[in-house]
Design a protein around this nucleic acid. Structure first.
Lengths: 183, 183
DNA sequence: ATCATTCTCAACACGGTGTCGAAAATAAGA
DNA sequence: TCTTATTTTCGACACCGTGTTGAGAATGAT
């Protein structure tokens, strides 16, 4: 995967084609542009992301273990593919093709989280704001933290990062953190 | 400001020069490249950002009003210049020139916040993790929330966004939110 | 008026993109 | 097996934005 090695803007179609063993002009037989290729990649990520967070989204209340598990899996993926993941999910202007698919994916992720929060609120759990807004913030905090973890790998140990992020999200949404030091 | 109108990648040097009333090749007399111009712009933002957050950084503990004031000023700026601010501060690959200046600015902002948190911790206030990490998360949450507010202006009213963000940051760092409904 | 500095710009070379049509490879049908 | 259709490859071309150069115009000081 060439996108792991350098910024997407610096990856030339010639390289992509070369890595695939075909001539540059042959690339256009498979994809309309570099953006279209990236869009296809992003599309592939959709399913994986849902799977990563499945336990958390299915559970109720402050299920810290489920959240931490999902975040851990996501971080592992970012450690590998962070280079292009952040260019696809963080970059404000990844081109129309990518933007459309990306926005849908992000919106889906936010509303899934939002529904979970609403469910908790209906169950009587305290919630610290409008579910939609809280979910958006949490999802964005997640991506940006992982992107930062990729950019500065040595800044914080993974364990600490994950613990802090997990608690931060719980605190952000529910205002409290379960006492997990007990396990 | 041409950068307010469309993605920077789509702004051609010819347009920039045209807007300044000179020929394209004349642009290179003033800046080495489009990136260099953007870097100069980012450099200009440094001071303003510090000013916006001055009260908060100077105060102690959960001074909600000061934080909310600073965030409000920042949001106002993002509402105007969000288009290029997010491309300069969120985009993972804004080119080497911008990246260098941007990273320094972000690092400064984080460490200023971090020092404030350490000060609070020394004063006996509970703090929910390593100051450096919490500060990074808070600063990143701020930018990404503002970027999102620019991208989806109608999603949430500004007041609600600011209130939620203010409380979210306080909860993120200190674990609690002062009861501001009293004023 | 002279000279130096500042500023402007037309012309050029370069590199990456996307298109086209012709050929090669592969598969399908008789 | 030979023919025909479909899929896949690629060379050649035109296009556009970038950055450089060197020559000339404007400005300003002596």
């Amino acid at each position: 995967m060439v996108f792991r090695e350098k910024p997407i803007s610096q990856v030339t179609i010639d390289e992509l084609a070369g890595a695939a063993g075909i001539a540059r002009s042959g690339f256009y037989f498979y994809f309309e542009s570099k953006q279209a290729l990236l869009a296809a990649l992003v599309d592939q990520v959709i399913g994986e992301n849902d799977l990563e967070m499945a336990e958390w989204l299915a559970s109720d209340g402050l299920d810290r273990a489920a959240l931490r598990l999902g975040l851990g899996r996501a971080l592992a993926r970012w450690k590998v593919d962070g280079r292009w993941l952040r260019e696809a999910f963080i970059n404000p202007d990844p081109g129309p093709d990518v933007q459309q698919i990306r926005d849908r994916l992000v919106a889906d992720g936010c509303s899934a989280f939002s529904r979970r929060i609403e469910r908790d609120a209906r169950a009587g759990l305290a919630v610290m704001g409008r579910p939609q807004l809280l979910a958006t913030m949490a999802v964005n905090l997640r991506s940006v933290t992982f992107a930062d973890a990729y950019a500065h790998p040595a800044a914080h140990p993974d364990d600490e990062l994950l613990d802090t992020l997990t608690d931060a999200i719980l605190r952000l949404v529910y205002g409290v953190t379960p006492d997990h030091r007990s396990n």
